[in-house]
Amino acid sequence: MPHPKLSTSHKSSVSIRDMIEAKKSSRQLGAKLEKGIPVILLLIALVSILTTVGIVLTLFTEMIEFFRRVPIMDFFTGTVLKPLSQTPEFGVLPLITGTVLSSAVAMAVAAPVGLMTAIYLSEYASERARKIFKPMLEVLAGIPTIVYGFFAFTFVTPLLREIIPGLEATNILSPGIVMGIMIIPMIASLSEDAMRSVPNSMRAGALALGSTKLEVTGRVVIPAAFSGIVASFVLGISRAIGETMIVTIASGSSKNFTFDLTQSMQTMTAYIVEVTGGDAAAGSTIYYSLYAVAMTLFVFTLLMNVLARYVSRRFREEY
């Protein structure tokens, strides 16, 4: 039985030519696709750059409008924030102290506890204990911040008021502590990564010289992993500065300029929530103050993140 294509010989030459042509054009299409795909993917990747540009541009242009109305020095050195009064004043210092204090409380909790957790998980825990504790800490990290806010407001604050009589119903101490708890898993996990990347031979060397486990940890592992630990602290601070819901709920909205942790204070993030939640009319000075505060916040956290990366790169000990 002859091949069907061979039997109709006069047609076959045409069809093969057709097939070659078809193949050529599909190959051209394929080649176009091969050339086009990287361009399309690059355009997709540009979305993240557009996001950055969008953030910087919106914050900057609206901030400029704000500084047309309120002198820049009044904003950065003013200790009075009264956006709603007849003679409004826009000093950002009350918000900055609120932010710095709440972050300081958070770090006072998170830095030691997070570091010691990292030490336990990296140096002391058995493989089995690690397998149990690490996922549980991840659960702690996965809980939405609004839930922590609820917890701070309805549980931690009432509890602290039993202990500290002068504590107000909204204060900076309780959200600070709860924020610290929230940041523990992050610091613990980043520091643990840094400590586990210290080679075992160094531990073995110190142990062989007669050190106890604590001495190995304190004099060999922590110095070797120091850059990673510092970076984790800096990222923790950045996280605390940007945290919104816990402080909005539990630290209140009074714009006190004070260093008293038992008082109600407002952070930069909580101010933004208050202003946007209050339906500030677009075009009012309060509305523009939002962008100046947000820009300050953005610069603060950006500096922290850049610093963290710089520290972990520049001061890394390579083994």
Binding site: S48, S238, T269, L297, M304
Partner: peptide, 27 residues
């Protein structure tokens, strides 16, 4: 630079994204 930019974006507080969304998408 693109990768650095993405790493920096990951550290931007969520509320700043909210302001971006309010300014661009909502208004």
């Amino acid at each position: 630079w693109l990768e650095t930019n993405i790493a920096n974006l990951a550290g931007v507080p969520s509320i700043v994204y909210g302001i971006l969304g309010m300014t661009i998408f909502v208004r």
